[in-house]
Nucleic acid binder design. Sequence first.
DNA 1: TCTGGGGTCCTAGGACCC
DNA 2: TCTGGGGTCCTAGGACCC
Length: 423
Amino acid sequence: MFALIDVNNCYVSCHRIFEPQYEGRPVIVLSNNDGCVIARSEEAKALGIAMGAPFHLIKELIDQHNIKYYSSNYTLYGSISRRIMAIIREEVPAVEVYSIDESFADLSSIETHYSLESVAKTIRRRLFQEVGVPVCVGIGKTKTLAKAANRYAKKNNRNAGYWILDSDEKESQCLKWLEVGDVWGIGGQYAKKLKQNGINTAYDFINTPENWIIKNMTVVGYRTQKELKGVSCIELEEAPPAKKNMCVSRSFGQFINNRADVETAMLNHIATLAAKLRRDGLTAGALQLFIQTNPFRKQDKQYYNSALTQIPLATNNTIMLMNIAKAVFGSIYEEGYNYKKVGVIALDLVSEKVKQAALFYNDIPNDKAMKIMDSINNKFGRDSIRIAAQGVGKKIRKDWQLKREHISPNFTTDINDIPVIKI
DNA sequence: TCTGGGGTCCTAGGACCC
DNA sequence: TCTGGGGTCCTAGGACCC
């Protein structure tokens, strides 16, 4: 059996740990740049606030119902997530951290219904007491069934907070209830196509001929069908597979139409990217840059361009990557547009330890300097030390930086933000 | 005025090789 | 009337996940 443990309305729940006065009240969390809604409390969902709703279009509703809103604070969520995963690891033999708020567990060593139930209850109780977040636990024979069970628990057994698919009857009942578009692995496009063919529930889906599924949804859809039938095709991945690409991109707080600022933003993304590569012990064999205007501004001329550069000697050195990026940037930047976003992607990633040497290339970068930069930034906070091209003096705070007007304190990661308790 | 960021997998088609 | 068989690599596009 597999379990899926999923934090209820994760980002909202993270904020409520430290501001419990918002328990029972409508709360939402906004995307970067306070652009749109990416998390909602149950109370906010009940008021009709949709996932992805643009913030500026729901301001009236927010005032009307006194909805609490936060800018997203990934430092906080990451920290809470680590606490959660540490506790889950103590309770089950094997864990796959699937996302910031979800993990799969392998329960194959646990046999009776009673023991499964007790694992679910213990995890819930400990996370609530020791971290302060509510979670739901779904249990089934495959990862896809565990996902389905989790959804069932959330909608139909929320107080208990778990659901176990340990009989054929319970499986059928859950699959008849589950809309086909809510199956893990079936997204909007396939859901539309399935419904056009009269396949509305997960139960309809498992009773659809295999050849139809393969023809219309490839082998990926076929695997999903097998999983729903109780045949496990997707294994637990305790160690995440090596990354193939790594991307850093941000929308600007407002649009920018001067080259120097766009370039500075890009170089800052390079610095972030290079640090992420070094953190994971990876080097990039190629670098892609892209820039784009804001597609929502219909009054603006639209533009998108990208450039892919092979790197002769795979690297994670900030200065080298910056030099490459600067050399290529001019080929994609065009004057006369209002830019909204710039991004950088590292591709052809290989481990630092096994990277191929280059025969005709002697420009060995100073990686020791990078190590020192990383250790300073790890100790004193990001960008404590940086490359001058990222901006100095007054240039550090600029239009391209994120808008986060409703940011919460970093309660768990910044000594200055630790909550004060008065006794 | 204002609409997120970061990933993976699969297939078809076009190019190449012997 | 008739035109082989067996492969790989790369890219773009489309689907999906959180």
